[in-house]
Each structure stands twice: as structure tokens, then as C-alpha cells.
Amino acid sequence: MSVIKVQGLSKNFGAIKAVDQLSFEVEAGQVYGFLGQNGSGKSTTIRMLLSLIHPSEGHIEIFGQSLTANRSAILEQVGAVIERPDLYPYLTAQEHLTLFAKLRKQKITAAKIEATLAQVGLLSRANDKVQTYSLGMKQRLGIGIALLHDPQLIILDEPTNGLDPQGIADIRQLIKSLSKDQGKTVLVSSHLLSEIEQIATHILIIHQGKKMAEGPTSSLLDPNKTIVQIKTLDEADAKQKLMASTYRSNLLERTEGLYLTIPKLEIPALNAFLVASHIDLVSLEAKNSLEDYFLQLTSTF
């Protein structure tokens, strides 16, 4: 069953098309990675899913119901953290959760609030004002608010922004646990491929408001298409020798730098070929940033 079904979604801000004819589906229980560079339209799409931004075109269905017609009922089952963890600086974590507990139809007990505080690691600071919190603590409180009412769908927009490595690991663990242990559907956006790669079961890549790729993580991040950058002392000589070799078909057309796409397992063989060809190698690097992945996408599409 589709938890989210988006069809032909567009949003124009004047002449700028922030989201352009975007369609995708998120199935129940998936951790759906929403991947794109800053300004690619991720946040605009997420805000449209949460009815914060009115779409210019298109249709959104959540839990099989139209968002426009059943906004209130749908949002009762959704928890979200959108970009920065903006909260009320003059309230404590306890007060935040108590207030937001009142907004739900279901009764949220004091025990549940305490459990949520424990879940996000804020129990010991529950009665401190948010203005004394670090960014990571605020982010965790934001997630606590999103999880408080036990929603079926959790939308997290860049949840690891500004967190330290331990914080990032904790959030990653939490997302995995929400999906695996509690069967929740999680839509998580990020501009970091490495982040999404580790938690998402499915990925959608968006670029300039348009969908570039969508599918299971395992099939999208194909290990047979790893991009490799070669840095040498004499790039022209190296390129000439590669063109003359069996690697000719693996070379990528680029104005700057020397790139190849090869299966991950063949990287040692490439290294041996470069050494044997007396190419003065400086570095041989497998690229896995989002930019690199776009590079890969544009080379294969």
C-alpha cells in the first residue's frame, strides 16, 4: 500500500520552477531517501507534503486520501521535522512536549512524554529552557515532538544537519529502529549520499526540481558503475595510454580531470595497469559524493 503518492507535483515561485512535474510513491514500512543538492526542491516538496506550501500543480495522496480534502485526518498520523530544529527558546523540552501532546486527538500521558524524552536522550535536561540547548539537542527535541503521538508516517528533512558524528549515528540508528522495529514509514531527505545510503531502502534523487532517479538503494547505487578519478603528473599522457587500452570505453568525457566508470572490484586491476604503463600516479580515488553520483547519472542517462 502506498503511504505517499505524488503525481505531477509542481511549484512555481514566480518564474522559478522549484519543483517540476514530480511523481513518486512511498510504500508502507520503507525508509525513503529523498536526495538532492541544496536548492534542488527537496524542502519545497516536503513542505507541500505537509501542506505548508500550496502546489501549483499536481496531486498528493497520503494514506490513500487526498491531502487537500483530508488534511487534518492525515496530519494526525504524520510527524515531521523540517530543516532547522526551530523551537520556542523560552520553553523547556518538557513544556514543548506537553504543549504538542495537547494537539493530538489521542491522549498522550505524562509517562509517554517521559519515554519520548528518554528516547531522544533529553530526560536529564527536560526542565532546561531550549535556549540553553546545543543544535544537536534541539534537533533531538524536534524529533521527539515528531514522534510523540506515535505517527505512522515520519518526515525528516535534513535531520542530521549540524549534528556531531555521534549525533548523526544516533539519528541514523533511530531511523533504522523506527522502520525495522516499529514498522513506521520514514521519508528522510538529505544532500549527503553517504547518509542516505546507510539508512534508506529506497532513494529518489531530485535535481533542479525534477526527478533524476528513483528505486531501491541497492539498484541505484550500482557497484558496477563506480566512478574513479585518476590524478597523474602528466594527464595527457595517461589519457592517451588509457585510450589505447581496453579502458577506452570506461573513460568519461570531461573537460577537466580524468574519470572512468568501472566495477568496484576492478579498481585494483586498473591500478596495476596504470603502474605497468609507467604512468606517474598521484592518486586513484573512488568517488561517492552526491555530485559524483550526479556525474555517474549524467554519464549513464
Binding site: L50, L52, R71, A73, E76, I82, D86, Y88, L103
Partner: peptide, 14 residues
Amino acid sequence: NLGTLRLLFTTPYS
């Protein structure tokens, strides 16, 4: 300005 408006507007209340 605080950014909390989106917290409120993503609740079931209109």
C-alpha cells in the same frame, strides 16, 4: 521568524 510556524501548521488544526 522563529521558524515555529511550520511546527504549528503541520498539526491537525487548520
